[in-house]
Amino acid sequence: MAVIAYWEAIRRAHDEELANDPMVIAMGEDIGVAGGTYKATQGLYDKYGPERVIDTPISENSYTGIGIGASMAGMRPIIEIMSINFALLALDTIINAAAKIRYMSGGRVQCPIVIRTPGGTAHQLAAQHSARLARMFMSTAGLRVVTPRGPLDAYGMLKSAVRCNDPVIVIEHEQMYNLKEEVPDEEFFRPLEGAEVVREGEDITLIGYNYSVHLCLEAARRLEADGISAEVIDLRALKPIDRETIRRSVEKTHRVLVAEEDEAPVGVGSEIITGIIEDCFFALDAQPVRIHAADVPVPYAENLEKAAIPDADDVYQGALKVMGRI
């Protein structure tokens, strides 16, 4: 076991998968010679060469499309898109092509491609570098969407994503690349489906994904001091969603909060709470609460940004509201 950072976990998964299968390649802006904006491919250009760790021009839609085309012919490209905002440029090839080719070919052609991209706010990057957008991908049939919360999943889920035969969107987070966790030295895989109870509790269920899991965990620690036992679920995958794990938890705690860093409309919270209403409405003892960003383009000014994006205190206050304490 070694304690490694999120970026090192991604780098290790790349390294092992490139070594394991000659059909695996990595593509993206600055991932080769420059080693990657988040260091996720550091050193791999020297190790595997320019044919397998490919620096692309700033042409998101078409280099993603090239990856998709290569995957149709048996390759397994891992594409890095530097920011989820830039993934908007590639929506045509991701949503109109990768997500639909298996279906519209009657299952005869598949696109085993992995698209990694950080979705989330960092520090004062302003509106065009702070999108989260998980909700857009989770609403598209034909994609898998995963949101690793730490190095263990970042490594294990990326490895599974490379082996899986479906297009997988891996949503990372700029504020998590240096987050550290103990990771086994031997190779392992983490599945692309299934939510995980990361903290057991009795009184309320806090549901998060990606960065917001950490907000939920911090809120849970504060709630404990107030005598409230919070269970925390990491969704891990936004498509498909593991409704069973959520139902079991809500039937135990009877209270639920969903924390997302994104804006609320048509979002993760809306989807999860709708599922709870459909699956276990009568288990609820209180109205569910969504914690989410303000419905504004993310502002630059530090105080405005802080006001726009939820933090652990917002989750904590929201949980108190669900508990009827405020």
Binding site: Y63, G65, I66, A70, A73
Partner: peptide, 23 residues
Amino acid sequence: MGGYALVGQPFPLAAGLALACKH
């Protein structure tokens, strides 16, 4: 490897197929 309704979408897909041939 298909017909596509998005005008111009086959350009990158074709280049990707060619990348696989090269690879």
